[in-house]
Design a protein around this nucleic acid. Structure first.
Length: 811
RNA sequence: GCCGGGGUGGCGGAAUGGCAGACGCAGCCGGCUUAAACCCGGCGGCCGCAAGGCAUGUGGGUUCGAAUCCCGCCCCCGGCACCA
């Protein structure tokens, strides 16, 4: 059979065969070492786009490589299927969210199979299945028992477009991460997960190989800073509490010339004088109306209003005015600061604008502290204007001031984090119902575990009221109290979908377990994930939440080890052919289905991997597809066309090409360098082609070359290699065949080319036997007419020899 | 402003201290073909007749030797940003 390469015929054939044979099913009782490869599961938006292919096809290649290397590979796939688009489809077009979602899943599952990815479909997880979200609810109850899930009133981020609150992580530049609406602040009672309990541990990335980019982003998001809480007195009649401030510079406390509270600070109401009240009220109202965007657009102009009240510095008894200003955030620290204009830029700007005093409390070699300051400065030498602390060197200042504060009972050293608890309540229908019941008598009562899942009701009205559609389903909301059966009401909020994706990797290990989220044996067998791949857009949401979730589960004794994913690789962003982000409005979208129907899935996979380094992303090059198609055709022809064999033909050159390809390709795929890997595979097919055209080939060397080429190409182009493997008379399946090993003896060259430089410029090239040593190379160099001509009898000062590569004559 | 990534032919990119431009696209020349496509072979940084010189954003430095290491600057992409 010498017919031509027809991707469509062979791709559908093998796709069906693999599914039928469950070729990629991971077996729990396989004794070989396990490898858990995971790529982020998609939201079932309805269509698999090129971004999905770009994320998943290389992940698949890496998983296939591990399988061929002899690992028992778990490579599962599922759908993150709760979320707003389904509900928006319901509102806009009157379609049931469930029908919409499951139709999309059906379609996308087929598209994923077209890709030829070796997913274990027996383990598919769909987060909107009651079988799955039963366990999301179970996890919620466990977190509740541990005190890690709690309900609190707080200023929440309200997205007017999505009609729901958002976690801080989902607010980007004051806008909703999903809908881009400007986020409002609302005071609401909501459910939170206490991720801050793990703030310190989440800063530690020991034992995991994650990109620095992601570690830095998480570290910045958590935002640890060391400092102190200091208590100032409040000099207002009838107010008998102190004013706590967080500061990273307690050593500047003698320079605190005023205090600033966030406009929303609880104390403002009680300390404001009658005279100042109108101005304060006005400012607070203004601030509350301002969106985050407007706050940013004020160009850091330091606005604020005096409350009329004074605080007392506990260190020196000095009275300082208390202001309110929106540059102090109620959500950070204590929502109040001691302002030290001499040593803080923002305080300096505020003091200058409002005519407040500036008192330096450190001296500095470059600053005349007797004169009015031009700007705030840090990095002082010793303390000044600081009573008993005068003369204290900067290095000891913080510690001494904190010790003093502790001794006198008005402060202590502390660590503050920017990270806020994770707000998980959503006022939406299409999510996991929070399994709680509100009873007038017993308060908030968990749904008993035996009653899980709390299933979503059907036939719900979708009017965007700002209230969850669930509130209107009376027969669902009204339930007996689990304690005594009296009438009570269900919690109508559903969970943030990031909750569903925080533990999905655990469910894959035992996806059909009706008794538990997964068995201990399965967890011990498969967890944690060895290699996780996905987009960097999840750096501070999914990837932080899932680490928190894992650590909480570990502390409950449910999983073992400190981290859920040992290695993480983030692919870059694939751009349109014009170098811009793919978008419908730009008209630069590359549709995978179209590419597949033109070139086949193998070619599309390879082209995506060939365009550049995977972690860097970059523009998709549609014309470059030609090169991939030519290469696959050549591989096809080399395997199926008749070859003229002869015994006794020198096999060294062909074998060298084969073993060099094995060595290079292995090294590349090991490091996710698919672009250079494919280059090496192309070189190998070219070498095979030349060998065949040059005359009869050595039978064994040829067979070795074909076998290696097919196995090395199998991870990136699974269909064509399977077909050719069969046509080459090999045993099904190439994807279970062992990865070829390079023999270092065979990769060695017979001859080497040594470059001769004079003062670093190439002047000649010497071809020498591979065995040539330094002495031999130098001898050949001096024997070169070209070189001796250029030297004109001059004596080299030095000759540098790089073994097997280069000689550099220094004159 | 801070943090991270990046800047190399017409294009995507390769080379992480040792021959800059692997591999591929596009282009050009040639072969095959009645012809075209496919396929095959070859040529492709700039200046120069040549010898040679100049070339990896830019200016310095280290080195026998720098795309690669160090310092300054410019530009692009991503993230964070009044965090006390």
């Amino acid at each position: 059979m010498t017919d031509r390469y027809d991707p469509h015929r062979i791709e559908s054939k093998w796709r069906e065969r693999w599914l039928q044979d469950k070729l990629y099913a991971a077996k729990d009782d396989d004794p070989r070492p396990k490898w858990y490869a995971l790529t982020m599961f998609p939201y079932p938006s309805g269509d698999l786009h090129t971004g999905h292919w770009y994320a998943m096809a290389p992940s698949d290649a890496a998983a296939r490589y591990r399988r061929m290397k002899g690992y028992n590979v778990l490579f599962p796939m599922g759908f993150d299927s709760f979320g707003l688009p389904a509900e928006n489809a319901a509102i806009k077009r009157g379609i049931d969210p469930m029908e919409w979602t499951y139709a999309n899943i059906e379609h996308m599952r087929g598209q994923l199979q077209v890709m030829g990815a070796g997913f274990d479909w027996d383990r598919e997880v769909v987060t909107s299945d009651p079988d799955y979200y039963k366990w999301s609810q179970w996890w919620f109850l466990q977190l509740y028992k541990q005190g890690l899930a709690y309900r609190a009133e707080a200023a929440a981020n309200w997205c007017p477009g999505c009609h729901t609150v958002l976690a801080n992580e989902q607010v980007v530049d004051g806008r909703c991460e999903r809908s881009d609406d400007i986020v409002e602040r609302r005071f609401l009672t909501q459910w939170f997960f206490r991720i801050t309990a793990y703030a310190e541990e989440l800063l530690n990335f020991d034992g995991i190989e994650w990109p620095e980019r992601i570690r830095t982003m998480q570290t910045n998001w958590i935002g640890r800073s060391e400092g102190a809480i200091l208590s100032f007195g409040v000099d207002v009649r009838g107010v008998d509490e102190s004013l706590s401030v967080f500061t990273t510079r307690p050593d500047t406390v003698y320079g605190a010339t005023f205090m600033v509270l966030a406009p929303e600070h609880a104390l403002v109401e009680r300390i404001t004088t009658a005279e100042q009240r109108p101005a304060v009220e006005d400012y607070r109202l203004q601030a509350s109306r301002q969106t985050e965007i407007e706050r940013l657009s004020t160009e850091r102009e330091k606005t604020g209003v005096f409350t009329g009240a004074y605080a007392v510095n506990p260190f020196n008894g000095e009275r300082v005015p208390i202001w309110i200003a929106d540059y102090v955030l109620v959500t950070y620290g204590t929502g109040a600061i001691m302002a030290v204009p001499a040593h803080d830029e923002r305080d300096f700007a505020f003091a200058r604008k409002h005519g407040l005093p500036v008192v330096p409390v450190f001296d500095h070699p470059d600053v005349d502290i007797a004169a009015p300051l031009e700007a705030a400065f840090s990095g002082g030498r010793t303390m000044v204007n600081s009573g008993p602390f005068n003369g204290t060197p900067a290095a000891e200042a913080v510690r001494k001031v904190i010790d003093y504060a502790v001794e006198h009972g008005f402060g202590e050293g502390t660590v503050n984090y920017r990270l806020r608890d994770w707000l998980i309540s959503r006022q939406r229908y299409w999510g996991t119902p929070i399994p709680m019941i509100h009873c007038d008598e017993h308060g908030i009562v968990p749904v008993p575990e035996d009653d899980l899942p709390v299933e979503l009701p059907k036939n719900v009205k979708f009017d965007p009221t700002g209230q969850s559609p669930l509130t209107q389903v009376e027969e669902w909301v009204n339930v007996p109290c689990p304690v005594d059966g009296r009438p009570a009401r269900r919690e109508t909020d559903t969970m943030d979908t990031f909750m569903c994706s925080s533990w999905y990797q655990m469910r894959y290990v035992d996806p059909h377990n009706p008794e538990r989220p997964f068995s201990m044996e399965a967890a011990r067998k498969w967890l944690p994930v060895d290699q996780y791949t996905g987009g960097p857009e999840h750096a501070v949401m999914h990837l932080l939440y899932t680490r928190f979730f894992w650590k909480a589960a570990r502390d409950m004794g449910i999983v073992f080890g400190d981290e859920p994913m040992l290695r993480l690789f983030n692919q870059g962003v694939l751009l349109g052919p014009d170098g811009n982000r793919m978008s419908k409005s730009r008209g630069n979208v590359v549709a995978p289905d179209e590419q597949v129907s033109r070139w086949g899935a193998d070619a599309f996979r390879c082209q995506l991997m060939f365009v550049g380094p995977w972690d860097q992303g970059g523009p998709y090059n549609p014309t470059g597809m030609q090169g991939i198609v030519r290469w696959l055709n050549r591989l096809w022809n080399l395997t199926v066309e008749p070859v003229e064999f002869a015994d006794g033909v020198d096999s060294r050159e062909l074998r060298r090409a084969t073993h060099k390809a094995i060595e290079a390709a292995t090294n590349d795929i090991e490091n996710f360098r698919f672009n250079t890997m494919i280059s090496r595979l192309m070189e190998h097919t070219t070498a095979m082609h030349r060998a065949r055209e040059a005359g009869p080939v050595n039978t064994e060397a040829w067979n070795e070359a074909v076998s290696a080429a097919l196995r090395l190409t199998a991870p990136v182009a699974p269909y064509i290699t399977e077909e050719l493997w069969e046509r080459a008379g090999q045993r099904y399946s190439v994807h279970l065949a062992p990865w070829p090993e390079a023999d270092p003896e065979l990769t060695r060259d017979d001859e080497i080319e040594v470059v001769v430089q004079i003062n670093g410029k190439v002047r000649d090239r010497l071809t020498l036997p591979a065995s040539a040593d330094e002495a031999a190379a130098k001898q050949a160099m001096f024997a070169s007419e070209r070189i001796s001509g250029l030297l004109e009898g001059k004596e080299p000062r030095r000759v540098i020899y790089v073994p097997g590569k280069l000689l550099n004559i220094v004159l």
